[in-house]
């Protein structure tokens, strides 16, 4: 597994998760140092509310504390597992709060709370994700909208149709075409 911090003396994610199963708080805080920014960024993108994003971030790491043993290298990268937990945690918060996205047209980059930018995260996955975000901007707006709502708000076809007031068939088509095009753009970008 790639060491996310690039320092061979740093404990690997697997080692830290193992230490967490032995109730080592320091290990969890090391994981927070390593991934807290990514988790918070994702939570903020889902919730668009700093206070709720903080709560979701904290809940995510507490889940790791209680359930970290559920991850193993066979399940893939720890960071992907962690961000999946973070995504569902944030979406749960979103549903519980019954909050709708504040503005589908306001990118988080210009949102007022986004002034404190995260220093560049030097992991290939993170860089891939940032590339993918720029590729999404090439999609037609209606396709990008359904993809973002589906991913960041956890909406299904029916929920998207209700939320957007579009016919179900239109939603399905736009989501499918958008993802097909995004996949194609991604393949082009990664094969260069």
């Amino acid at each position: 597994m790639t060491d996310p911090v690039g320092d061979p003396r740093s404990p690997t994610d697997q080692e830290l998760v193992h230490r967490i199963t032995q109730s080592d708080e320091g290990a969890l805080m090391l994981l927070y140092e390593r991934y807290g920014g990514q988790v918070y960024s994702l939570a903020l993108r889902v919730l668009r509310n700093p206070a709720l994003a903080e709560e979701a971030t904290q809940d995510t790491f507490l889940k790791v504390w209680h359930k970290g043993v559920q991850w193993s290298p066979s399940k893939g990268l720890f960071s992907s597992w962690l961000l999946t937990v973070a995504r569902y945690t944030a979406i749960d918060h979103l549903r519980r709060e019954r909050r709708q996205v504040l503005s589908r047209t306001t990118p988080p980059e210009v949102a007022p709370w986004a002034s404190a930018r995260l220093p560049s995260v030097d992991t290939p996955r993170w860089q891939d994700g940032q590339v993918l975000r720029t590729l999404m901007e090439q999609l037609p707006a209606e396709q990008r909208t359904v993809i973002e709502l589906a991913f960041y708000q956890g909406m299904t076809h029916s929920e998207l149709a209700e939320h957007l007031g579009w016919p179900l068939g239109t939603v399905k088509t736009r989501l499918r075409l958008g993802l097909q095009k995004l996949r194609s753009l991604w393949q082009e970008a990664t094969q260069r």
Partner: peptide
């Protein structure tokens, strides 16, 4: 999976730790 990493990077507040 890659989309999980695509959120705009924002630094969490220092007190969150």
């Amino acid at each position: 999976e890659v989309m999980l990493y695509s959120a705009p990077p924002v630094r969490p507040p220092a007190y969150l730790a």
